[in-house]
Design a protein around this nucleic acid. Structure first.
Lengths: 129, 129
DNA sequence: CTGTATCCGTGCCGATACTG
DNA sequence: CAGTATCGGCACGGATACAG
């Protein structure tokens, strides 16, 4: 069988979480928010991730419409990944999660070294009710 | 060993995602947003979850400071779970995720039956940049 | 540079049975 | 009513080697 076609949850919240959950997906997305990146660039930015896994995560995000993949038939070949409109829609949410994560760390761990947030607001980042 | 003390990721985004990721956590949280619930109530609200798993998820959320557990020594015994301040801070975020999930479903699956969102805005739900 | 193939540990979570 | 104990499947992701 080629691909069992994995189904996404019906509940919107679960669906969203399913799509952005993955060991490296949020980080990759954060990097892509600042513009298209090549595979080698991403590898350099995240030295701890295996190449196989990196591509794997990118493929899944592509399949879910978060990431767009462009091939340039140069020599050597060049491939660029960038966030789609749908993917960009996650920026304010990830930013909010980042803020919440910081608060969580401060309120609980006290003296835990808190890494800087990768997500950076660009234009207006507001989620209205 | 009693408990290896699981560490949370250093990056705030990952930390936040780690904490709210779990097969049933978002759903449970959504229900708790509308007020304290007893175990039996939650079971009735989510017939598909096993009791063991339900308690498991609740324990983890308790450990992470999202949920508060109160025991009332009545006969028979009564236990109430409710969202903490930290947990309540997730409401607007889950709401945003819900919205994004709906958009995602609409833009991609076309004719997928989209379940209604459980999360409901109460007061002012806004995430500012 | 960009990718694929294989192997395998570990963690999540579901089913089921039992306890105070 | 609220909770614990045990067992086991399966998806996720890390290591490593190979390929166009």
């Amino acid at each position: 069988m080629p691909e069992p076609i994995k189904k996404l949850p019906k509940l919107p919240v679960e669906r969203a979480l399913k799509v952005i959950s993955g060991r490296w997906k949020p980080v990759i997305l954060c990097y892509l928010f600042s513009g298209p990146k090549r595979l080698s660039q991403l590898k350099r930015m995240m030295p701890d991730i295996t190449q196989k896994v990196l591509i794997q995560q990118l493929r899944e995000m592509e399949e879910h419409g978060l990431v767009d993949r462009q091939i340039f038939p140069d020599v050597p070949i060049r491939v660029e990944y960038n966030a789609t409109e749908l993917g960009l829609g996650l920026e304010p949410i990830l930013l909010a999660l980042c803020r919440w994560g910081q608060r969580h760390a401060e309120e609980r761990d006290e003296a835990v070294e808190i890494a800087d947030c990768i997500v950076r607001p660009r234009h207006d980042q507001t989620i209205a009710a």
